[in-house]
Amino acid sequence: MSTQSIGIAAGLAQANDRFHAARRRQLMTLVVVVLVISVLPLLVKDVYLQNIMVLTLMYTALSQSWNILGGYCGQISLGHAIYFGIGAYTSTLLFTKFGVSPWFGMAAGGGIAALVALVLGYPFFRLKGHYFTIATIVVAEAALVLFLSWPYAGGALGIQLPAAADNWANLQFGRNKLPFIYTALALATITWLVTWKIEDSRWGYWWRAVKDNPEAAESLGVVIFNSKMAAAALSAFFVAVGGSFYAQFVAYIDPDSVLNFHFSLLFALPAVLGGIGTLWGPALGAIILIPLTEFTRSYAGGSGQGIDLIIYGALIMLIALWKPEGLIGFFVRQPKPLPASADEGAHS
C-alpha cells in the first residue's frame, strides 16, 4: 500500500482534504436535522403522529447501530433481536425486581449485550456469509424459546411495567410523548456520532477493508478479528439501549414483542433501504419505512382483507428494486464506488 500511496501522494492529500471537508458538512447537516426534528413535535401535537416520530427515531438509532456491524463491517446479522431483548429484559427486571432506575438498567443491558456479543462473536466470526447470518438467526430464536420458559422473567406472560411517578428518573411520562421523542432523538444522534467518529478511525478503515476485500484483509489477521469483535460489541450495546428504551416506552414486554425475528429484520431493513454502510442510510430508510408501516396498517388494515400487507410489501419491494444502492442515492451526487485511486488513497 505504501508504494501506491507514495505514487499518488498529491492526489491523496487532495482527497484527504475533500474527505474532511465532507465530514464537516455531514456534521453541519446533523445539527440542522436535529434542530428541525426538535421543533417538529412542538408543531405536530397529534399523539398518533408523535408516536410514529418516536418509533422512527428509535428505529433510526437501532438501524444505525445494526449498520456498524452489518453495513460498515459487512457482517450481516439477522439476530440482533437478541440484544434488543437483552436490553428490554435487563432494565425491566432490574426496575420491577430491585427498583433500579431504568437509566442504570439501560447501561447494564447494554453492557450485558456487549458481553454476549463478544462471547458469540468469538466462534461466529469464523463463519462466512450466509453461514454467519443463519447462525445469528438461530441464536436469537433460541433466546426467544428460552425466555418463553423462564418463569423469573415472566415467561410467556411477560412483564408489565408498574406505573411509577411520571418523571425523567423513571422514564415514564403518562400521555406525554415529548420526552420519549427527545430521548429517542438523543439516542439516534449518539449512534450517528459514534458512526461518524468510526468512519474516520482506524477501525473504520479496517472494516471497509474487510468488507471490500476479505482475502486481502486477512493479511491483517488478528487485528481484523479484534476490530470485528469491537464492532459487534458496539452494535449490540446500542441495540440493547434501544431495547430498554422500547420497554419503557411500551411499558409491557413479553418474549414475542421484543425477541421476535421480525425485529431483527426491522433493524436491518431501514439501513438497506436507505443505504447500507452509509452515515445517513438508516435514518433515511427509517423515515420512509416506519411511517409507511404505521400508515398502511392504520388506514388500510381495518378491512381485514390483507390490503395493508399488499401495499406495504409492494412498496418495500419497489424501493429495493428501484434504488438497489439505497435511497441515499438520491442525495449523494457521486456514485458510491469512487474512482479507484482517490477512493483507496483516502481510505488507506
Binding site: 429484520l265 436491518a268 431493513l269 438497506v272 433501504l273 381485514g304 382483507q305 390483507g306 390490503i307 395493508d308 400487507l309 399488499i310 401495499i311 406495504y312 410489501g313 409492494a314 412498496l315 418495500i316 419491494m317 419497489l318 429495493a320 428494486l321
Partner: peptide, 16 residues
Amino acid sequence: FATFGLAIVLRGLAQL
C-alpha cells in the same frame, strides 16, 4: 429484502 417484500405481498394476496 426484495423477496421479503414479496413475501408480505403474497401473504396479503392470500388473505384477500
